[in-house]
Design a binder for these strands. Structure first.
Length: 422
RNA sequence: GGUGAGGUGGCUGAGUGGUCGAAAGCAGCGCUUUGCUAAAGCGCCGUACCUCAAAAGGGUACCGAGGGUUCGAAUCCCUCCCUCACCGCCA
């Protein structure tokens, strides 16, 4: 959520930043300004009436104490009272309208974000790891099916298309990757491990910006008003919602493994081969809560922490930066980490590391007390560290051997308990 | 799921339908006293929003949330949420 004061004081700046995203968002700013003006007008009038009522009511108390008649004053207060009810309803309506508008406006891209319309304009920041020779590599579906690492057909029998069931060595490899990543981030990068609930309240989904705009992409249990979290970002970032943290305890760094649930409405047929886009997948997520002063540096560090995973596993990868037109709704700046898929001769997005600045914190009222004792909004960041199915695909495709077996990277062997799959 | 108790400022904890934004204590900050520490004394000490060019100042709201009763609600009524205890069920 954007700061209403910023919108009020620098509307042209806000509009021009929003315009870099493309789309119609900038036009909504005028609606916000209009409603804000009406809201304040009604609120000021309401407060004046409240003050009048308060004063007169006290007078009644004083008059009664002296044994004087109060009928006339009571009648006046009653009149004010009905006016207060009317204006109060108006104020609330403006309030709700303003909030609804603000919830639908995306974050301002950071000044440093390259301006562009779509994904093809995302610049490559750096790349790493050796790119394996093509050598007629099988893709992960052929490979996984042959070695019985997962079973897509039977998963569909259980839950429909877009679900995966890992089996045997595949299930074990997935578990090994999770354990490996959790250990890396907790032991070497200083993150605190969390194992949060997968079902969260509506407010949490609003807090981390999945709602209200993207409800169609979420699985909800309406009767209980709970949602299946599409990422651990939701429960973990909301952990301290509505709290005021001490500056000295920042940054908070969390890592959490959870399954993620996404309806992927409207995504049918897009990048859906095999296990690249599924309705339920596992992910190890990194989350940071920090100060505005430190968030940019923490963002770079978080991206580097995610990068360590692909480096340790010996995969070829690249880091790209999302241009303004491709930036997610709540993000001010995002780096994507993409692992190379020899089978598809393409890069797969395995992590998206974003700085939300105070956009989420404002929605969830997450603040910290700075060194001068002032309450300010925190900055929140998150990134995958990493997403499992795509990492799995890139890994088995990269490490397949001519005889059809798959080598296990050295760092993973202690977790997997073997040096190869055949 | 059932029964009971309860949700008040950073914490503990009072609170009569009217001068309660809320006693008191603790913690915190400042000052005084003091060779230092300690102790004592005095003062300050919530958040959000509105108003104001800004500061100062003024105002409103907030005692779990939302409604209601009333001239007036932390206080009375209703609904919901949460916490605690016990019982039941259960991996």
């Amino acid at each position: 959520m954007l700061d209403i004061r910023l919108i009020r004081e620098q509307p042209d700046f806000v509009k021009s930043r929003l315009a870099t995203r493309g789309g119609e968002e900038a036009a909504k700013i005028d609606d916000v300004l209009r409603v804000d003006a009406e809201r304040r007008k009604a609120e000021t009038a309401l407060q004046q009436l409240n003050a009048d009522r308060k004063r007169l009511s006290k007078e009644i108390g004083a008059e009664r104490a002296k044994g004087e008649a109060t009928g006339e004053t009571e009648a006046r207060v009653r009149e004010i009272g009905s006016e207060i009810t009317r204006l109060g309803e108006q104020t609330t309506a403006f309030d709700d309208e303003q909030r609804a508008l603000l919830l639908g406006i995306p974050n301002l891209p950071d000044e440093s974000v390259p301006v562009g319309k779509e994904a093809s304009e995302n610049p490559v920041i750096r790349s790493g790891g050796d790119k394996p020779e093509p050598k007629g590599a099988l893709d992960h579906v052929a490979l996984g099916t042959k070695l019985k690492l997962f079973d897509l057909e039977r998963a569909a029998k259980l839950s429909g298309s877009g679900f995966i069931c890992f089996t045997g060595a595949g299930a074990r490899l997935e578990r090994a990757l999770i354990q490996f990543m959790l250990d890396l981030h907790t032991r070497e990068h200083g993150y605190l491990e969390m194992s949060p609930p997968f079902l969260v309240r509506r407010e949490c989904m609003v807090g981390t910006t999945q709602l209200p705009k993207f409800e169609d992409d979420m699985y909800g249990l309406e009767e209980q008003q709970l949602f299946l979290a599409p990422t651990a970002e939701v429960p973990v970032t909301n952990f301290y919602r509505e709290e005021i943290l001490a500056a000295s305890e920042l940054p908070k760094k969390f890592v959490a493994y959870t399954p993620c649930f996404r309806r992927e409405a409207g995504s049918a047929g897009r990048e859906t081969r095999g296990i690249i886009r599924v309705h339920q997948f596992d992910k190890v997520e990194l989350v940071k809560i920090t100060t505005p002063e430190e968030s940019k540096a923490e963002h770079k560090a978080l991206t580097a922490d995610a990068e360590r995973v692909v480096q340790s596993l010996g995969l070829h990868y690249r880091v790209i930066e999302l241009c303004t037109g491709d930036l997610g709704f709540g993000s001010a700046k995002t780096y994507d980490l993409e692992a190379w898929s020899p089978g598809q001769q393409a890069y797969l997005e395995v992590s998206s590391c974003s700085n939300y600045e105070d956009f989420q914190a404002r929605r969830m009222n997450l603040r910290f007390k700075d060194t001068e004792g002032k309450n300010r909004f925190c900055h929140t960041l998150n990134g995958s560290g990493l997403a499992l199915p795509r990492l799995f695909a890139a890994l088995i495709e990269t490490y397949q051997r001519a005889d059809g077996s798959i080598a296990i990277p050295e760092k993973l062997q202690p977790y997997f308990g073997a040096t190869e799959i055949r």
